[in-house]
């Protein structure tokens, strides 16, 4: 796990390798099973393998992919799909803003960040947030890319495998596979829970997320993020002792 890692992998090549090694362990195992669940879901929706692969290929992030399938299955209009997926995935903007200073370096062209931002999703983001700030600047983007590109490739392969599995898989197992994902995310954040400023944001977000969803499913995340995030910010700015809880 990254917590035992040194602050320097020796070279840019070493950073790519270590990123790859870290991804092709528990993250690849869990996301691999999750994406088998997603592949099975697409196949149950009655779509083709290409649809499943396009979704994982260019819209990589589980919650938005499941929402797209779910909405397509009930014949939602393109506008409804755009709005719903946009609101679910709006978290990717603050996530990208927060990650960028930790992966940026002076030599990589801007286009590289615009390209690799496609691979920002919870698992790779959490790993990079933990490891990259400790690395020399030139090893940061390589570590992130070394982590997410192999992870994404595993997800593509698993989507494919899962697509052809539903005939074999009982519905309960598909549910178990899809359930892996939120539980894994929850434990990843619990494992790093005590980082400065995080506990208030995580606890308030976890409480407000489901509550606001009951009131307004579409706007729930935006309201949760702004409200819980702002309170957590005020608490950590004005009661600095809480930073070390």
């Amino acid at each position: 796990m990254p917590s035992n890692h040194p602050d320097n992998f020796g070279s840019i090549k070493g950073a790519y390798k270590q990123g790859c090694k870290d991804a092709l362990a528990i993250p690849a195992l869990i996301l691999g099973f999750t994406y088998m669940g997603f592949g099975a879901l697409v196949s149950e929706t009655g779509l083709e393998i290409w649809h499943a692969l396009i979704s994982t290929g260019i819209n990589w992030a589980v919650p938005g992919q499941i929402a797209t399938m779910e909405l397509y299955a009930i014949d939602a209009s393109l506008l409804v799909i755009a709005a719903a997926v946009g609101l679910i995935n709006c978290r990717l903007m603050p996530m990208t803003i927060v990650l960028m200073p930790h992966i940026r370096n002076k030599t990589s062209p801007r286009i590289a960040y615009y390209f690799f931002s496609n691979f920002i999703a919870v698992t790779g983001w959490a790993a990079a947030m933990k490891q990259c700030p400790r690395l020399p600047e030139e090893q940061r983007l390589p570590y992130f890319v070394g982590f997410v590109v192999p992870l994404w490739s595993i997800c593509m392969l698993s989507t494919c495998i899962g697509f052809y599995l539903p005939d074999v898989l009982p519905a309960e197992v598909t549910m178990g596979l899809v359930f892996l994902n939120p539980v894994y995310f929850m434990l990843v954040f619990l494992a790093d829970f005590s980082q400065p400023g995080r506990p208030t944001a995580l606890i308030l977000g976890a409480i407000l997320g489901p509550l606001t969803f009951l009131l307004t499913p579409d706007w729930s995340l935006l309201v949760t993020g702004l409200f819980a995030g702002t309170i957590a910010f005020i608490v950590s700015e004005y009661f600095p002792k809480d930073k070390t809880i």
Partner: peptide
């Protein structure tokens, strides 16, 4: 940063307690 973590926690809690999909 606070907003990002609140959004993530909110999404994860919602996915577990009030999921869409299977």
């Amino acid at each position: 940063t606070c907003v990002a973590y609140a959004l993530l926690a909110g999404l994860i809690a919602r996915m577990i307690l009030l999921p869409i999909g299977p």
